[in-house]
């Protein structure tokens, strides 16, 4: 490895997918007063941690930086990222961001990444993201962000390894019919799937250390962006309405009285599933 790496992991603060999610306001949006780090982002943080470990470890001068755009509560997502190995956090916090869609989010994150490079005085080598956020689940941001920054983009990577010299990476992408091995030169952006690794649970030492790690907060204007280029005003899409998913209807129980197989087949045929 010629130079220490700079890895940025954009993370999102989302309502806990395992808990009750509440729609509120008009148009109705997911309640975001309490939340967690999107679980899928933990795979990106773990990938970053594993890359650091495989290339000389903590003493080698690599930097893993967590970046979030979100309301005040999003500091919780940053805190978790710092517990999972990020060295510093950056928070884009601005009321003007409310209602931002994927398009705007990518614009803001791109500006923040440029600002991070200036602040840190080092070029970003690798951006690692999750494969989707567990709330919106659009998976649009990684590709748009790579496009804006002019980075090679590898989406849905189920494995990721960096070359010994740190100049290129190899990743696996699974399509429905095949597994692709792809190689990309750095700088690059990779969105990793939940198959890429097993995220660690933070140790108490890491929890304590995270308290001492720095977090910088930036407003939209700090990033050199216009407030009407972000939020609902700058967005290409707008949520008009949202309704909770209707409760799942009770299933149909087939009691096997000798002709269970036939009844199952009839069930599938009736729904044109076979």
């Amino acid at each position: 490895m010629s130079q220490p790496l700079t890895i940025v992991v954009p993370v999102k603060h989302v309502p806990d997918a395992a808990g009750e999610r509440v729609l509120a306001g008009s148009p109705p949006l997911l309640e975001r007063t309490s939340g967690i780090l999107s679980e899928l982002d933990e795979y990106a943080l773990e990938a970053a941690a594993q890359i650091v470990e495989a290339h000389g470890g903590a003493g080698a001068g690599h930097r893993v930086l967590a970046l979030t755009m979100g309301p005040a509560g999003a500091t919780d997502a940053l805190k978790r990222a710092l517990q999972l190995g990020a060295d510093a956090g950056f928070h884009v916090l601005d009321d003007a961001l409310a209602g931002s869609d994927a398009w705007v989010t990518a614009r803001v994150l791109a500006a923040a990444l440029e600002r991070i490079a200036r602040t840190e005085d080092r070029a970003v080598d690798l951006v690692l993201t999750g494969m989707a956020a567990t709330d919106g689940e659009t998976s649009l941001v990684p590709g748009q962000l790579a496009e804006r920054l002019g980075l090679a983009h590898v989406g849905f990577a189920s494995s990721l390894a960096l070359a010994e010299d740190g100049a290129s990476l190899t990743a696996t992408r699974h399509t429905e019919t095949e597994a692709l091995q792809v190689v990309a030169d750095l700088p690059a952006l990779v969105a990793v799937t939940d198959q890429a690794n097993t995220p660690r649970y933070p140790t108490f030492k890491a929890i304590m250390a995270a308290k001492k790690k720095p977090v910088q907060t930036w407003s939209v204007t700090d990033l050199g962006l216009d407030t009407d280029a972000v939020g609902l005003a700058g967005s290409l899409t707008e949520v008009l309405d949202a309704v909770p998913r209707p409760p799942r209807a009770a299933g149909e129980v087939v009691v096997d009285e000798g002709e269970g197989g036939i009844r199952l087949a009839e069930f599938l045929v009736a729904r044109k599933l076979v």
């Binding site: 660690r200 649970y201 140790t203 108490f204 030492k205 304590m208």
Partner: peptide, 23 residues
């Protein structure tokens, strides 16, 4: 062990987590 639970109350110099008995 990887999570450091067996090292919770011990100082880092002995491979612990630098926590305490309450942890």
């Amino acid at each position: 062990g990887e999570m450091g639970l067996f090292g919770l109350p011990f100082p880092e110099e002995y491979g612990g987590m630098g926590g305490d008995y309450f942890a």
